[in-house]
Amino acid sequence: MNRGVVYYILGRFLQSVMVLWIIVTLLFLLFRLAPSNPLASYIDTTFTKQQEAALLARFGLDKPLGEQYIIYLFNLLKLDLGETFSYSGKSVMDILRADLPNTIYLTLSSLLLAYLVGVLGGIAMAALRGSLLERVGTTFTLMTRAAPQFWVGMLLLTFFAFQLKLLPSSGIGPAIVRYRWETEWDKLMSPVFWRHMILPTFTLALYLHGLPLLLMRSNMLEVLDQDYVTMSRLAGYSEWRVMIQTAARNAMLPVLTALTLGIGYSIGGNVVIEHVFSWPGLGRTLVRAVQQADYPLAQGAFFFIALIIVFMNFIADILYSLLDPRVGASAQAQVS
């Protein structure tokens, strides 16, 4: 690896750290300055000043803002996200550690399904260009992309869960089964869990598949005009081989980049689906935390999402520098 690439990666790493620092600072201020009160759920007819003082002390909100910020930053360096305000006896890490896997399962399976259908569909649309099928297919894809996720979710829920009673409507499994899962492995091995995942995965994939499909279709159309594709055809290769081996392989690259970044964005973007299907993931916890003005939990959840997005961007940058020598070279030119 040349020096340019090393400098480039180091530079991008420092940039990522700076971005994260700015994000945590903004998060810290945003929640504290927002007009919302973490004591809202404690107000009762017997609520006293005494109780209020005790709660503020317990949450550390009786200290000056600057001091709270310093404590917060130091704790963050130790990866200690603090105690939640609204869940008794749980740390933010406990909650996020329980939520994150569920969000990842849902995100990855939907992305996988979406990109599989999207890429194949894109190829098919390109091959069928100008036909009635292509027009119908593209219109359908645009519709799924434009339809609000909660609405699609509700429709699927009503039809498959409540009318046909084919699939369960919410959660990751009945409590009676869930409490016996002691590890993530138990959960993953349970058919019940996968059955519960079908509807939310399908809803999310229905929305996500539009991007790779349309991207793949337009890339294919572009690639199909290239000389080397014409050459392949002239060489007598079958249309199938031209499409898959020659055109599709070249058209795939931008789609893969979109996938890398898509993972990051989807982790934080499942809020609506998780709410509709009562899926116990990061997005649902985030909504609850904001509703209850649970600062540490909301900050922690946003921080996690930001961390994943920044990390995925960092990975994409490194991949670029490795795949495209010009990136490293320009960095070296700037250094020297």
Binding site: L157, T158, A161, F162, S169, S170, F277, S278, R284
Partner: peptide
């Protein structure tokens, strides 16, 4: 024998579940 309370943030899901028997 058993008493179970689920958290269902989605009101429509509540309606669906009471009708479907869940």
């Amino acid at each position: 024998d058993t008493w179970l309370m689920n958290v269902l943030p989605n009101q429509e899901a509540t309606l669906g579940q009471i009708q479907s028997g869940e």
